[in-house]
Design a protein around this nucleic acid. Sequence first.
DNA 1: CGGGATCCTTCACGATACTG
DNA 2: CAGTATCGTGAAGGATCCCG
Lengths: 137, 137
Amino acid sequence: MTTSTPGGPDRRPGERGDLLDPLCPTRRLLDRIGTKWTSMAVKVLAEEDPGELRFAELRRRIPGISQKMLSVTLQSLVRDGLAARRVEPTVPPAVHYRLTELGRSLEGPLSTLRIWAETHMPEVDRSNRLADGSAPG
Amino acid sequence: MTTSTPGGPDRRPGERGDLLDPLCPTRRLLDRIGTKWTSMAVKVLAEEDPGELRFAELRRRIPGISQKMLSVTLQSLVRDGLAARRVEPTVPPAVHYRLTELGRSLEGPLSTLRIWAETHMPEVDRSNRLADGSAPG
DNA sequence: CGGGATCCTTCACGATACTG
DNA sequence: CAGTATCGTGAAGGATCCCG
């Protein structure tokens, strides 16, 4: 999402007071859940919670995701402390993922968004079609 | 956010059943509020609600936004039916923006996200610092 | 005042191939 | 099985200039 911390490197989060700061927590959260597969992965993991899912099983449950993007997405989740990774030292290795408590706590806000989306995105789509139809060329 | 509707143009929203569809409403909502300035603009407009704000005033209240990005952001909001644009035919023209009812309804879910972010992003940051410190090189 | 048009850079994402 | 490495593309976003 770009947001490459413009304005100099010597800025602290929360400085200058308000949520409009480029480093504000909301912006940084949106940068994360805005990436294409993150919210899907959280949802799928949350549905399995408190259980775990293996890499291949996650891939099956997220149709269309590539191996690379699942890997990148899970690494981000683990790095952010939203998911945990557990490796069984077998051959071949079996890697399991689960939500952390922090990850679980994100499910509420995300489901709120989902409900709004399911309820109101049809209106947004109608609005877009209207805009397309009124003055296209 | 790319999401360029892969898999062919002949897909209907909601088809194939679940939220994992690339065209699922949640994904499309995230594509919108994930863009850098959208949620900020909604927040600023919501604080003024039910009043209106002019272009220049919005720009003042969103530090760091460029003229172009404010324009693009507002056009998206209007196109999506989240904001309304009103032009006073003076010279020079005065353009006012306000949230629609649909836009107002989005404030709830967004503030839920903000609260989570303010509460938990410090934990996410700590997790990231841990990851950076443990095995950087 | 409130934009539009243009150029440019960065980055998310996809496709593909390789590995322990 | 569960990744890593590499390459290419499209789109977001910033900077700048112009316009009615």
